[in-house]
Design a protein around this nucleic acid. Structure first.
Length: 481
RNA sequence: GGCCCCAUCGUCUAUCGGUUAGGACAUCGGGUUUUCAUCCCGGUAAGCGGAGUUCGACUCUCCGUGGGGUCACCA
């Protein structure tokens, strides 16, 4: 292709960034980068009723948090601005009027009430609800009169009768739809704002978008856009409708009812942005060699939208969790300091920061999410309560008391080192021929209060002599009680 | 319901007419180990159904069935 690739993502500031939207941003971004093209961010804020305060900034903020960025768009600007639709109103009005002048669109003065009753009647008669084109046949004089008296109006597209509308989708191939099922679409709303359909077509053309990669939910409105491109006589971009994410159980598109849908919420839950990105990459697309771990750079090289799977995919949380663990372990190996930095916001306020460096090596490979850190390490700095039943598992009171006393005495003296700890405890176990699993598990529970912990000796070393001795004493009291 | 899209292990996928249908996650079992985790090894598990086309269909066609999307002065 000789025309430089230009892709875009156009979120609407009506809520938080959806994981599906972010995934589509990733694809548009990667495709543009792969071809040395341009990725554009455009804000589609034409619905003033649903707009949410601050949403626009959070949308942009989240994109940055995932390490992505746009080449043209809000903040950055660019040769095709403004990139916020509410700042482009005159453009839409101009083109809408142009369509009316060319007899490709018309004024409609129908009241909301009339529209409602037309719809209700259609439903009652079990026919597809559709505008009855009441105003399509208004004479020029009638329209002029209505306009003169200041009646509210919208501008609707004159959709042709029984016409085959064809377009090609990069992922699905040729798609043909009969125009009869398309309503005379509202292009310009009575508040003067354009509808999505008018605005996207004008902006995508104006911003010279070459490839539209968007969610599959837009597939059925693409014919409307095709009609508009043809009405304006504009060249059509390449379309690629990307399958949507289904709930983890595979039932229906992702909904708040069944889990988190905002990209930010996954960050908040301790997923690494790069792990999430990797997850988006391999959900519905596989690299040639079928590997699961793909970096952004590799993705840019290898990704091709035409290879995206056609089917909607379940948002498999299990795989995400696995991927996140892989990324946490890799980050630890690569850059301790960076992992510590990422972990910090997830630590409780009483966490002993100065000990993080020695605690982390003990637990990092047990972290599936950054939020796991608290649960995994709380016994290092918070009071614990040992379970008597657990302490006495596979042994009786007298034996456990004896064992605890022996351990206490052994650790009282000598230097506090890993080798000393190991020699002492192993010595006690071997000399008395204690059952390994019983003895070490008992000590583990006594010292940490937990059945599952990092390696015992290392853990005790990091805890320090005072704490360990105190815990042993506490355990002895609980057993005796 | 109309229209559109889709259909291989539980999940995500490989296969692009001829394979013992492969991989990853999950799951199960084993090894390493004082627990958990990591790591290593192994197992269970799939072509929705029915007609065609073909020497031969998971793969092509059609019809069912199932799933998803969409039918606003929302995007």
């Amino acid at each position: 292709m000789n025309k430089s690739v230009r892709t875009r993502m156009a979120p609407s500031p009506t809520g938080e960034m959806h994981v599906g939207s972010l995934s589509i941003i990733l694809k548009n971004y990667a495709f543009a980068k792969k071809h040395g093209g341009t990725f554009i961010l455009r804000i589609e804020d034409t619905d003033k009723v649903r707009e949410v305060e601050g949403a626009k900034d959070r949308l942009m903020d989240v994109i940055h948090k995932f390490g992505l960025d746009w080449d043209e768009g809000p903040i950055k600007g660019g040769p095709h601005g403004p990139y916020v639709q509410s700042e482009r109103l005159p453009i839409y009005t101009k083109f809408a009027k142009q369509l009316v002048d060319e007899d490709k669109a018309y004024y409609c003065f129908c009241s909301k009430e009339r529209l409602e009753s037309v719809k209700a009647a259609a439903i009652a008669n079990k026919v597809p609800p559709k505008y009855d084109r009441h105003c399509r046949s208004l004479s020029q004089e009638e329209v002029a009169a209505k306009l003169a008296e200041g009646s509210e109006y919208v501008i609707r597209l004159k959709v042709p009768d029984n016409q085959e509308i064809k377009f090609n989708d990069l992922i699905r191939g040729d798609i043909v739809i009969n125009s009869d099922i398309i309503d005379d679409q509202v292009l310009l709303k009575s508040d003067g704002f354009p509808t999505y359909h008018l605005a996207v077509v004008i902006d995508d053309h104006d911003m010279e978008i070459t490839h539209i990669m968007r969610g599959e939910e837009w597939l059925s409105s693409t014919p409307k856009h095709i009609l508009l491109y043809e009405a304006f006589g504009w060249e059509k971009p390449v379309f690629a409708h990307i399958p949507i994410y289904l709930n983890p159980d595979g039932q229906g598109k992702m909904s708040k009812r069944k889990g988190d849908v905002s990209a930010q919420s996954y960050l908040d839950k301790g997923y690494l942005p790069e792990a999430l990105l990797n997850f988006f990459m391999i959900l519905g697309w596989t690299p040639e060699d079928q590997r699961d771990i793909v970096t952004l750079e590799e993705y840019i090289q290898e990704f091709d939208p035409k290879d995206i799977s056609k089917k909607s995919v379940a948002f498999d949380l299990k795989k995400l969790a696995w991927l996140n663990g892989v990324y946490i372990r890799a980050l630890y190996e690569k850059d301790h300091a960076e992992l510590i930095k990422r972990l910090t916001p997830f630590l409780p306020t009483d966490f002993p920061q100065e000990k993080l460096g020695v605690i982390l090596p003990l637990v990092y490979e047990r972290l599936e999410r950054l939020t796991d850190m608290e649960e995994l390490t709380s016994f290092f700095y918070q009071d614990i309560e040992q379970d008597k039943e657990l302490l006495l598992k596979k042994a009786d009171v007298e034996l456990v008391k004896k064992q605890l006393t022996e351990v206490e005495e052994a650790l009282m003296s000598g230097e506090w080192s890993l080798s000393h700890l190991e020699e002492s405890l192993r010595g006690i176990q071997e000399r008395n021929n204690y059952q390994k699993s019983q003895f070490f598990m008992m000590v583990r529970v006594a010292v940490t209060g937990k059945k599952a912990t990092p390696p015992l000796f290392e853990t005790m070393e990091v805890m320090g002599k005072d704490l360990v001795l105190a815990r042993l004493k506490q355990a002895r009291q609980i057993v005796s009680a």
